[in-house]
Simulated assay, not measured.
Amino acid sequence: MIIDAHHHLWRLDGGYGWLDEPAMAPIRRDYTVSDLRGHLAATGVDRTVLVEAARCDTAESIEFLALAAETPEIAGVVAWLDFAALADPTAAGASTDPAAIAALAAIPGAAPPSSQLLKSWSYERPAKLVGVRDQVQAHADPRWLARPEVVAGLRRISELGLVVDLVVRPDQLAGAGVAADGVPLGRFVLDHLGKPPLAAGGAGLASWRDEVARLAERPNVVAKLSGLVTEADWARWTDDDLAPVVAHALAVFGPQRLLWGSDWPVAELATDAVRWLATARALVPSQDHDAVFGGNAARTYQLEID
Rank of each mutant, 00 (worst) to 15 (best):
Ala66Phe: 01
Ala68Arg: 05
Ala68Phe: 02
Ala69Met: 08
Thr71Pro: 05
Glu73Thr: 05
Ile74Gln: 04
Ile74Cys: 01
Gly76Ser: 03
Gly76Ala: 01
Val77Gly: 02
Val78Trp: 00
Ala79Thr: 04
Ala84Met: 04
Ala84Leu: 05
Ala84Gly: 15
Ala85Asp: 13
Ala85Leu: 11
Leu86Ile: 08
Pro89Gly: 06
Thr90Lys: 03
Thr90Gly: 08
Ala91Lys: 10
Ala92Leu: 15
Gly93Pro: 09
Ser95Asp: 13
Pro98Ala: 14
Ala99Cys: 01
Ala99Thr: 13
Ala99Tyr: 07
Ala99Met: 06
Ala100Cys: 10
Ala100Met: 14
Ile101Tyr: 05
Ala102Tyr: 06
Ala103Arg: 02
Leu104Ser: 07
Ala105Ser: 15
Ala105Gly: 15
Ile107Leu: 13
Gly109Thr: 07
Pro112Ile: 14
Pro112Cys: 12
Pro113Lys: 06
Pro113Gln: 09
Ser114Asp: 12
Leu117Gly: 04
Leu118Arg: 10
Leu118Phe: 01
Lys119Asp: 09
Ser120Gly: 13
Trp121Leu: 06
Trp121Glu: 07
Ser122Arg: 15
Ser122Phe: 02
Tyr123Ser: 10
Arg125Leu: 05
Pro126Phe: 01
Ala127Gln: 08
Ala127His: 04
Ala127Ile: 07
Lys128Tyr: 05
Leu129His: 03
Val130Glu: 01
Val130Asn: 00
Val132Thr: 04
Arg133Ser: 09
Arg133Phe: 11
Arg133Gly: 06
Asp134Glu: 11
Gln135Leu: 14
Gln135Glu: 09
Val136Ile: 14
Gln137Ala: 15
Gln137Asp: 15
His139Val: 06
Ala140Ser: 15
Ala140Gln: 15
Asp141Arg: 03
Asp141Leu: 08
Asp141Ser: 09
Pro142His: 09
Pro142Thr: 08
Pro142Trp: 03
Arg143Leu: 13
Leu145Pro: 02
Leu145Cys: 08
Leu145Gln: 03
Leu145Phe: 01
Leu145Lys: 09
Ala146Asp: 10
Pro148Leu: 10
Pro148Met: 08
Glu149Ser: 14
Val151Ala: 14
Gly153Thr: 12
Arg155His: 10
Arg155Asp: 10
Ile157Asn: 05
Ser158Arg: 03
Glu159Leu: 09
Glu159Asp: 15
Glu159Ile: 04
Leu160Asp: 06
Gly161His: 02
Gly161Pro: 04
Val164Ile: 14
Leu166Met: 13
Leu166Gln: 09
Leu166Ile: 11
Leu166Ser: 07
Val167Met: 14
Val168Ser: 06
Val168Gln: 05
Val168Thr: 09
Arg169Phe: 03
Leu173Tyr: 07
Leu173Lys: 00
Leu173Asn: 01
Gly175Asp: 04
Gly175Ser: 10
Ala176Glu: 02
Ala176Phe: 00
Ala179Gly: 05
Ala180Phe: 03
Asp181Ala: 15
Asp181His: 14
Asp181Cys: 12
Gly182Tyr: 05
Pro184Glu: 11
Leu185His: 15
Gly186Leu: 10
Gly186Lys: 11
Phe188Cys: 08
Phe188Tyr: 07
Val189Thr: 10
Val189Asp: 10
His192Gln: 08
His192Pro: 08
